[in-house]
């Protein structure tokens, strides 16, 4: 019975996760004529710069999301229940609108002839170069991914037993010490999943960097170019994707170990 219920999901996973993964691996290790080769993987080395750039932009966006999102999550989780619902709603509402549309709206705001620059001109201020900069990409990522940081941290924080905070106060903690000694260590799991949920899509994005960054800054753009764009080298695109996947996996694994030791360090 249980097996039968699981079957559709197994088929789903097979078709949409396993098969594509196998195909990525297959293309990565074959030449355009179909023979086995390491050439694609070796060629990925040429894109080290974009890799580093992607991880840098991803890391900066993640840190900004954390700095903005953590206090926000804390505030939401400490509000009264109906305020909590409203604030969570406000975080989610932008996500009801398509991701592409939101990014396009930023484009019209930031463009050289965009709304912000027109306003600046109206006040006789110098125009700013905003579009096609690293800053624009980071802005777009923080804007798009901030809810993914807030939500996991919020859900962990909302579950922290209020009596633990009272216990800490009772044992001599002022508000600052309560945060440092109780709330912070207990919210680590939420922070870790928040970082994962922001960093992975940020580091591998191509739409945001294409629309707001001009299209050749990040590794996602390169992959897109191989598959859809002018470069048209499916095998190289697959190889870069594979390497990106592996690197991200390793990063996340390290992240999780760090998270575990984090809580263990405070144990000792």
């Amino acid at each position: 019975m249980r097996k039968r219920v699981a079957t559709p999901y197994m088929i789903w996973m097979l078709i949409f996760i396993i098969v594509p993964l196998v195909m990525v691996v297959y293309f990565a290790f074959t030449s355009s004529s179909g023979g086995f080769t390491f050439d694609n993987i070796i060629k990925v080395k040429e894109y080290t710069g974009q890799f580093l750039q992607s991880f840098k932009i991803g890391a900066i966006s993640t840190v900004i999301c954390l700095i903005l999102g953590y206090p926000m999550a804390a505030i939401i989780s400490r509000s009264r229940e109906h305020v909590q619902r409203t604030l969570v709603m406000l975080c989610m509402i932008p996500m009801w609108m398509n991701f592409l549309l939101r990014t396009y709206s930023w484009m019209t705001l930031l463009e050289n002839n965009g709304i912000i620059n027109n306003i600046l001109e109206y006040f006789h201020l110098p125009r700013l170069q905003m579009i096609n900069t690293e800053g624009a990409i980071i802005l777009g990522m923080v804007y798009n991914f901030l809810p993914f940081m807030i939500m996991p941290i919020y859900s962990v924080m909302a579950k922290i037993d209020y009596r633990l905070i009272e216990a800490a106060q009772d044992l001599g903690c002022n508000s600052f010490a309560v945060v440092r000694r109780v709330i912070l260590p207990l919210s680590v799991p939420g922070v870790i999943s928040g970082i994962t949920m922001v960093f992975v899509p940020s580091a591998s994005t191509f739409i945001i960097s294409k629309l707001l960054g001009g299209g050749d800054m990040m590794i996602g753009d390169i992959i897109e170019a191989q598959i859809q764009g002018g470069a048209n080298n499916l095998n190289l695109g697959a190889a870069i994707s594979l390497v990106l996947m592996v690197v991200v996996l390793i990063t996340m694994a390290i992240m999780n170990i760090f998270g575990d030791t984090e809580s263990e360090v405070s144990l000792i």
Binding site: D161, R163, L164, E166, A167, A168, Q169, D170, L171, G172, C173, N174, A177, R181, V182, P185, L186, S263, S266, L267
Partner: peptide
């Protein structure tokens, strides 16, 4: 405020810190 009062409380259901071991809970 509670943290400045020379009293301590044993809470209903104890409210022990789940992220700390026995030693660290007591040493808190």
């Amino acid at each position: 405020p509670p943290y400045k009062r020379p009293v301590n409380t044993i809470f209903q259901r104890y409210a022990l810190f789940p992220h700390l071991n026995v030693y660290e809970n007591i040493a808190f």
